[in-house]
């Protein structure tokens, strides 16, 4: 068994697509009309055959209170690995991305949390030691 696709809810699929590709730098994997919405997934250019991130419409009534509560407490819904957090932070801040947490040293890694403008917080992490499990905790 392996994780091939995971999803996050986004306020607006087209705006989310623009943010995740133009700003973060992911690539479109699938963009298929599905009724009023789209089956819309992106992948990392560093792993084009790796896990897909599904940008899913946030229409369900449970989504808003769930995400509002998480964002209020600064809790990210997804985590992406980067090689150089300081450089990514500078690049993204230069593009106007808002960070709720600037690059922070947590011992085994450097982390920062950004607002994806589609209703979610995303944690970026740079592992200090060679990554073996892809996560600090």
């Amino acid at each position: 068994m392996k994780i091939a696709l995971t999803s996050i809810f986004v306020d607006d699929q087209r705006a989310a697509h623009a943010f995740y590709t133009d700003v973060l730098g992911f690539r479109t994997r699938h963009d298929i009309p599905l009724g009023e919405d789209f089956w819309l997934t992106v992948v990392s250019p560093e792993a084009p055959d790796g896990p897909e991130l599904l940008l899913e419409p946030a229409g369900h009534p449970a989504v808003k209170p769930y995400r509002d509560a998480l964002v209020e407490d600064g809790i990210p819904l997804a985590q992406f690995n980067v090689d150089d957090l300081a450089a990514e932070h500078a690049r993204l801040a230069g593009l106007g991305v808002q960070f709720t947490q600037p690059p922070t040293d947590i011992g085994t890694a450097l982390v920062a949390v950004l607002d994806d403008t589609c209703g979610n917080l995303i944690q970026l992490i740079e592992m200090k030691a060679p990554a073996d499990d892809g996560g600090a905790y």
Binding site: D73, G74, I106, G107
Partner: peptide
């Protein structure tokens, strides 16, 4: 040390820097 932190950030640094095992 750094003013203006979310609950998530406070929990992260307490866990990782001070080994505080408390729940959120």
């Amino acid at each position: 040390a750094r003013d203006g932190q979310t609950l998530f950030e406070i929990c992260s640094v307490l866990t990782m820097r001070h080994e505080v095992a408390s729940s959120r």
